[in-house]
Design a binder for these strands. Structure first.
Lengths: 140, 140
DNA sequence: TCAATAATGATAATCATTATCATTTTGGTA
DNA sequence: TACCAAAATGATAATGATTATCATTATTGA
């Protein structure tokens, strides 16, 4: 997280109270994928006057700095998660029962990627979402 | 397309002029992935008074009947395509240059799917999108 | 301390989509 | 054939997520 502060401060980007709070929320939610609305709710416990516009602006900024990873499932809204350490941010299992999102190991698609490249494309990124019942929902 | 008419007529679903036009548009766009707005524009050449609400309603209905396949890329809007014959509807390559969408063979993920099932999930569906430069955009 | 700049929060605007509702069309029925 | 009920349509209002605007507030460096 110090590395984050560095990164922020370098880029003429002030680490204001509200941004700090939003970052804290994201870090505490390690492994979860939050919507802007969810971030707002959590952050308001520390900073009650926080506005939704600031949340959107901050999440967007953090994503463009590579600190957060932004994705969209089939819901019509974005979700954000910490983009640190682990690199597995493009592959998810979304439970169709409870809606929770699970991570899936990266590198699963290397073979497919190579194949596509050989067809003349230049692969830049990929995203895999598996829709499934998670073990808990399955047993209910 | 006769099979489509059958399917429609069974389900107390009238094949009105506007629905016919929308179906025609989708069939002529075989292989493309159209938004509701794009469908509207194309369909209005046959049926100028067509309203956007009817387009949405019809696309939704056709999708729920399994005639169209509805998907959403990272754009904030849905796209529709014919869901006939070929089964490869969940795997796409989206060109980050021109935005065109290419199909990718189905079955690529069978191995991964098995693995996930063995972890206790029950896989229902999956979607893979690869972001790449297509051969043409790459050479420009 | 002050001026310039950046950030914030309230709110209006936008965009895709869905809901509402009065009007029109359709299909069967007397 | 004329009529009625149900279904479909099109215009438009409503919604939900996101972005833009703008006046106010906070921060930084001179």
């Amino acid at each position: 997280m110090d590395f984050i502060k560095e990164k922020l401060e370098q880029g003429e980007y002030r680490l204001t109270r509200q941004r700090q709070v939003i970052l804290d929320v994201m870090q505490e939610a390690e492994g979860e994928h939050l919507t802007a609305e969810e971030v707002l709710l959590a952050a308001r416990r520390q900073s009650p006057r926080l506005g939704i516009a600031t949340v959107y602006r901050t999440l967007e900024r953090l994503a463009s700095l590579g600190i957060l990873y932004k994705s969209r499932f089939d819901e019509g809204k974005h979700r954000y998660e910490m983009a640190d350490a682990s690199q597995h941010h493009h592959h998810h299992i979304q439970c169709v029962g409870c809606g929770r999102i699970f991570e899936l190991a990266e590198g699963l698609l290397d073979g497919i990627e190579n194949e596509v490249n050989q067809q003349g494309f230049a692969v830049i990124n990929h995203r895999l979402t598996i829709y499934a019942m998670c073990p808990q929902c399955k047993s209910e």
